[in-house]
């Protein structure tokens, strides 16, 4: 049993720890559902570059620690889910120099920019994540660009929804990142095949 003085020291240490909690780490893959949309009867390739697969966003905020989001780990799943719903079939292409037969175009996504906003920076209760993607559609035979598109995903999470101050920042930042993935996925799901160049390319694959 702890005596009263030791108990007070323990309690003081606990409060000290709460006060010192800083930074956050989002290091587990994030899953999204497969979009519930009608697909286009085309098979496409999907190439996830090493650069995209290893993307880590890190920001050090003076006095508040380092905030790290391992974004890359989730990207193959994210784009397989989205384009697997947009098109009838998606084949993951490991190398752009070795493209399987039956694929007329390959989708190559990259992250252009990632930004975060934290409650102590914005002055309100919201953790926010913005991710800007550049999505290229390449002709499988020539490697030339058919279409280039920029898509932004935004997600937010209110810190008041997370009780435990010890892991609040990590959980909120994870949910905000998930929100940004879902937002980008929603936008791609509804808008990708409506892009004129993509629409024309789909038409060319359907012609006899």
């Amino acid at each position: 049993m702890l005596g009263p003085k030791r108990s007070i020291v323990v309690i003081a240490m606990c409060f000290g720890m709460l006060g010192c909690v800083s930074g956050a780490n989002v290091n587990k893959a994030i899953a999204i559902p497969k979009p519930l949309i009608e697909s286009v009867p085309v098979t496409v390739g999907l190439h996830i570059s090493d650069n995209l697969a290893s993307t880590v966003h890190q920001e050090s905020v003076p006095g508040h620690g380092t905030y790290t989001i391992e974004i890359g780990e989730s990207q193959e799943h994210l784009f397989s889910q989205v384009f697997g719903a947009v098109f009838d079939d998606v084949v993951v292409v490991e190398s752009l120099n070795d493209i399987p037969d039956g694929i007329s175009a390959i989708i190559v996504p990259e992250i252009e920019l990632t930004q975060i906003s934290l409650p102590h920076l914005s002055g309100d209760d919201v953790y926010e994540v913005w991710i800007s993607y550049a999505i290229s559609l390449l002709d499988a035979e020539t490697g030339k660009s058919i279409h280039d598109w920029t898509v932004q995903g935004y997600g937010s999470a209110n810190r008041n929804n997370y009780g435990n101050p010890l892991d609040r920042a990590s959980k909120a930042l994870r949910d905000a990142t998930k929100g940004a993935f879902r937002d980008a996925a929603a936008f791609i799901s509804f808008r990708y095949v409506r892009q004129q160049a993509v629409y024309d390319w789909i038409g060319s694959t359907q012609s006899p």
Binding site: P33, P35, F190
Partner: peptide, 11 residues
């Protein structure tokens, strides 16, 4: 989740 992406904040 079941109706993704029809009930996201933007959609």
């Amino acid at each position: 989740d079941q109706f993704f992406p029809w009930f996201e904040p933007r959609t």
